[in-house]
């Protein structure tokens, strides 16, 4: 009494073509030997992939995005791990309001945050755009970091920490000797999730861009407006491969999806 497997197979196939197909199109389009974005490609070559690396603005914005993703995530973890620990282990007064504040970056649309920071932080105080971008990305990643680390802490029994205290550890000592080694996987998963989120982020960074300071996705959007060549396609492929690679490795060695 099951639905026919031909029918379900067709439905799954069509769905996957719709979801994944465009990536295959863009990969082939980026491999074109011609000068126009076209499908099917006009001969095959890697020239657009090579061209990407010669565009200076891409190189700069790639480094900026990399910097934001790595250090923004690290900052979010430094602020977020203690918060996650408090949420998992303490009965905090006003927990509802605090949780709401911590998760506000998930609720407030990023574009508005970018605009507000530009208008009320960067312009009046002379704060640099780069610093504002950094803080905004760190705050954006914070709720992800807190969520992943909290759930990883909830899987570690409290009495394991109590045992360490009784055996002679200080509170801080028990965190580093007992808690940390057991939530390392969760922290790494939080790092990866934060990295990918920050790196792909557009709305927050939209208004926070200035001369020479742009994240890579914003730079790609700007490039598209003026130039219609396959280099953005090539770059899009590279980014897709990077994200997929990171997630694949994380899943392979960490069971990433357990944490997300």
């Amino acid at each position: 009494m099951k639905p026919s497997s031909t029918a379900t197979g067709t439905i799954i196939g069509l769905t996957l073509v719709f979801l994944i197909g465009p990536f295959i199109v863009i990969i082939l389009a980026a491999l074109t030997a011609g000068n126009n974005l076209a499908f099917p490609p006009d001969g095959l070559s890697l020239k657009w992939f090579i061209k990407v690396f010669t565009v200076e603005s891409f190189r700069i914005s790639f480094l900026i995005s990399m910097f934001l993703a790595v250090f923004g995530t690290l900052t979010a973890l430094i602020v977020g791990v203690p918060a996650a620990y408090a949420i998992a282990r303490y009965d905090i007064p006003g927990a509802g309001a605090i949780q709401l504040a911590v998760s506000s970056p998930l609720i407030v649309p990023g574009i508005i945050v970018g605009l507000a920071l530009l208008r009320y932080l960067v312009i009046p105080t002379g704060f640099t755009i780069m610093a504002a971008l950094f803080l905004a990305h760190a705050a954006l990643i914070l709720p992800y970091a807190v969520r992943v680390v909290t759930s990883s802490l909830q899987n570690l029994r409290v009495d394991v920490e109590e045992a360490a205290l009784i055996l002679g550890c200080s509170r801080l000592g028990s965190f580093f000797r007992v808690v940390f080694p057991n939530i390392r996987g969760g922290i790494l998963a939080a790092f990866i999730l934060g990295f990918v989120t920050s790196f792909n982020q557009v709305p927050v960074s939209l208004f926070l861009s200035g001369p020479g300071v742009r994240t890579l996705p914003i730079d790609m959007l700007a490039y598209m407006e003026t130039t219609y060549d396959p280099s953005v396609a090539a770059l899009a492929c590279l980014l897709a491969i990077m994200s997929v690679g990171i997630v694949f490795l994380a899943e392979r060695f960490l069971g990433f999806s357990r944490y997300v």
């Binding site: 029994r157 009495d159 394991v160 045992a163 205290l165 009784i166 002679g168 200080s170 080694p181």
Partner: peptide
């Protein structure tokens, strides 16, 4: 006094062993 300074031992109902350490390291911890 902090638990670490009381010179007591506690065998938890759940045993509360350190999952990331070997049997030897667990016993050597204190």
């Amino acid at each position: 006094l902090a638990p670490s300074l009381r010179e007591v031992g506690l065998v938890f109902q759940s045993y509360a062993l350190f999952p990331h350490l070997t049997v030897f390291e667990n016993v050597a911890f204190g």
